[in-house]
Design a protein around this nucleic acid. Sequence first.
DNA 1: GCGCTAACTGGACGCACCGTCTCGTTTGAT
DNA 2: ATCAAACGAGACGGTGCGTCCAGTTAGCGC
Lengths: 183, 183
Amino acid sequence: MARQQTRSKVHDAVLALAREKRVGNITMEGIAARAGVSKQTLYRTWSSTGAILFDALLARSANEDGAVVVPDSGNLASDLQTLATATIAELTDPTQEPLLRAVTADMQSDDALATQFRELLLGPQLRGIANRLRQGNVPDPDGTAELFVGPIFHRWLLRTRPFESEWVTAHVARIVRSVSAHG
Amino acid sequence: MARQQTRSKVHDAVLALAREKRVGNITMEGIAARAGVSKQTLYRTWSSTGAILFDALLARSANEDGAVVVPDSGNLASDLQTLATATIAELTDPTQEPLLRAVTADMQSDDALATQFRELLLGPQLRGIANRLRQGNVPDPDGTAELFVGPIFHRWLLRTRPFESEWVTAHVARIVRSVSAHG
DNA sequence: GCGCTAACTGGACGCACCGTCTCGTTTGAT
DNA sequence: ATCAAACGAGACGGTGCGTCCAGTTAGCGC
């Protein structure tokens, strides 16, 4: 496989490119030129620009803990509020947002990429939230985790509305209300 | 603008292409050839393949009522169940799914397309659901509509899991429970 | 240190599409 | 019949694709 130094050069290049131009027109040739690497080297390890972007994203969330940690203070409402705010901050972070959008776009037509994204990033996130809920004795933790995360991603992916802070508060309140209602 | 006959030829061509090949490699030149139309004609009316796909999708949902109608039988639970099933059927319909995925993918980097999609398809859908909820005296109809739709799209867009029928039932139950809980 | 293998650079290849342009033709309303 | 708008056909330079080749480093075993 690729040497570590090569990997880093490619990651740096792709992150730099993502910052300065539309992600849509990031190309293999562009990355190769920017990283000072031959196209051959890129194709040896990655099959598409989407794969490179994802790899860069993954390396980033592995090194500096870019991954959102689920808080557990005992207070469910304030923990969910913190979590929602942190998630939204990550989704709208100027350096991450274009990468995440590009990868989710590629996912729509690339099954392998979709599987990786699901298993390495989304799955752990959902399981982390579900575990926090389970620890708080919330019934149906998996379903509730989806209920919590779903509307946030709906807004982000379909770009229906920006994240007003009042909406975030109301959303958290809805989740809390739904779990405290036990018929 | 384009004549109606031209529009139809282009729509037919793009739908045919979407059926037989990966949506990702639908091209302007391919559409032009298939529709028996010059590239000039395409560029005169549409700016990208994404725009053409969206236009075809819109025409489709305008003609034959492909649009999901919000049911109103008086029974909230069964109406939501019907609505969820219909929405999922539309999202996973073999002829629509690739188109929808292609458009949502393009949306991620095309603001104009995102705006159109939001205002012409997603907005009306959300408003329709919210109105049904409002009519049923559900408090916070807008928020609840997002709570209902969010997790469905989350599964579909991020392809976390298929739509098991038990999940749909459970999801509807969660929504119903959340609205009947008034603190 | 020597040598072998895997990873690399640099560049060339044919090909598909891009987006724009020109020119001549058809269409349909007045 | 007239005339402008919409159209078909096809050529243009340009860009990125994915693959191939030949020659060059880098690192690990002995």
